[in-house]
Design a protein around this nucleic acid. Structure first.
Lengths: 347, 347
DNA sequence: TAAAAAAATCATAACGTTTCAATTTGACCC
DNA sequence: GGGTCAAATTGAAACGTTATGATTTTTTTA
């Protein structure tokens, strides 16, 4: 008696072999095949028959059907703002690390767009991912609390969210920015501008606060007129640098809060024919490989991308394994890489 | 009579509202709710009740359960070698474009590792993605033909695969490389080295052939001793440049076949204290934004990332909509962006 | 060698959707 | 009002797994 059930040629896909097919040709029940697939003991002769049958059918278990019963898809949703240098590295590391843990990654680029962030939540929800990793957004705590309330682990990168049971990984934005700006102050700079990211982002706030703290510690007046906000993009970095350049009393140094804004700032300076560090000193948050190749090479705060990815992965996995139920915070240090984009000011 | 069926607290997830719950509180059958969800006509009063019920339950349809019946997950698998500048851009564009078509993206970075490529196929298969997009691998035609045989559309980027019913998008690797090298020849360079990618990759072969063709057309002898193979990485670009630099008769120009290898080559030259273009001219395949900021700015072949993503998306979508059954090839032109990394040789 | 214990297997009921034949409802016409 | 037809609804059967209680087989013990 052959077990050939009705066809269903959805979208032209051919019917794939099922556990039922395997069971039939192996001459055992589907329960036994399932046991085999899930690593339980089966009698030797049966195991061999099953293996032969799997081989001959080219069977691969359906994660979809499996998820139906177990409510576990072995898949996490990853939401990044875009694929700039930093996030590209993070994404690649994460995808790889998660895969090693048996987790597939559903990716979403929200482009700092509120509607897209909403959409991302919807996608992740309807696809029933097991966990969420998110970064670079703001104003989504209601959706997050909804997700968390549903029992789905959430890990945030560089976002602080009080009162919600989520895990966070962050770098020492405040400390690192403070050190970066202190470095400028120590070189004798008194008028230091900052090009910040979107100040509704927690990260941008932290970096700005670090900047302010450093100035204060150096006994300098933090001039609000030297704070230039951008929205993390190259374009905004360009514009912000332009405004800084035209400021009443031109700053002698600038602290740029992201790699992309640094690109913009440098482009502006290049267009102006301004020389770094002779005409202005510059320190960048975010280090990218290519800063080494710029002329001058750029002093930058390097985020430990791989350790960040590692930490995020660990948090996700421990939550999925039910090893931890309370929110945790991992705070990673950055490294300041001194290069040639700053100079000592003769006073 | 309340429809509260047994709990199943897998992984601590709370039970999500189901179509059954919605049907119960709306006072209709689940079939009617399903009709509503899928956009069919339902009686006005029922529609309103259903909408209220969905709202109050916070219901979101399960793509997993849906896929069980329809064999369609609205998800595509995307396999890239890594997240270098080019692939990061491609990935971001693709993810976004696909999402607009209602497709989620399962991402995999195979790192040019054969075992990982195999693993990627397994992940995509067990997750039953509706289509595959792949790039940057070699030697997988048996797995691909298996996938295609199963009725799953496959779209390749920059890979040629004869005899298989897959769609391919590529750029004019041969033509563009030829033009790039011709440019060098026209500037009077007679000893032009090439730093190629992994020659088992079709793309690398094409670019090398373009290089050879250009030299031939210029009446120059293509010296095999000036061909330096790397594996697309910065590290290999560095090493290859090193070998080129120490060649018996040092080349006066070099054509580097990928951005990352260009970084490596430039780093080597910088370490040597060699000046571009004075000591050696350089043209790069792959343009990255930052080449504008280098000193000198780098002449490069720019791949039309967004058009590539657009084309790939179109091919995938048309296949999924069963609008096309024969393999297609989209061949996109590149642009050569002339900057300052080449100079005319005084002969 | 029989009984008891343990191990392996089986049949079947979920899981949350979609689909389909059968039924009910509603609209319209004479 | 009765009859016809289309539109909307229903109930139940899938889809491919896992989990579970009941059963069979094997192993151990007496």
């Amino acid at each position: 008696m052959s077990i050939s059930n009705g066809r269903r040629p959805a979208r032209g896909k051919k019917r794939q072999a099922t556990i039922t097919d395997v069971a039939a040709t192996a001459g055992v029940s589907i329960g036994t095949v399932s046991r085999y697939l899930n690593g339980y003991q089966v009698r030797r002769d049966n195991r061999e028959e099953i293996e032969k049958a799997i081989e001959s059918h080219g069977y691969a278990r359906s994660a979809v059907a499996s998820a139906m019963k177990t409510d576990t898809l072995h898949m996490v949703g990853l939401m990044v703002p875009n694929c700039d240098e930093f996030h590209a590295g993070l994404l690649a590391s994460l995808v790889t690390l998660l895969r090693i843990e048996g987790l597939a990654t559903l990716t979403y680029c929200h482009g700092n767009n509120q509607a897209s962030v909403e959409d991302a939540f919807n996608v992740f929800r309807t696809h029933r991912v097991d966990a969420l990793i998110m970064t670079g957004f703001d104003q989504a705590s209601n959706r997050i609390s909804e997700v968390v309330g549903g029992g789905t682990p959430v890990v945030l990168y560089d976002n602080e969210l009080r009162g919600l049971n989520v895990d966070c990984v962050k770098v020492e934005n405040f400390e690192s920015s403070r050190r970066a700006v202190r470095h400028l102050a120590e070189l004798g700079h008194e008028r230091v501008a900052v090009i910040t990211g979107n100040l509704s982002h927690w990260t941008a706030q932290q970096r700005l606060r670090g900047y302010q703290a450093a100035l204060e510690e150096a006994g300098l007046q933090a001039d609000p007129g030297l704070v230039f906000q951008g929205y993390w993009t190259k374009h905004d970095g360009y514009a912000a640098m332009g405004r800084a350049w035209e400021a009443d009393k031109r700053p002698t140094a600038v602290f740029s809060c992201s790699a992309r804004m640094t690109f913009g700032a440098l482009t502006f300076l290049k267009d102006q024919g301004a020389r770094v560090p002779n005409d202005i000193s510059l320190v960048s948050f975010d280090d990218v490989e290519m800063f080494e190749l710029f002329d001058p090479t750029i002093t930058a705060v390097a985020q430990p991308v791989h350790r960040i990815a590692e930490s995020i992965k660990d948090l996700v996995v421990s939550r999925l394994n039910q090893e931890e139920f309370h929110s945790r915070l991992v705070n990673l240090p950055c490294e300041i890489i001194l290069r040639n984009s700053t100079r000592r000011l003769q006073s």
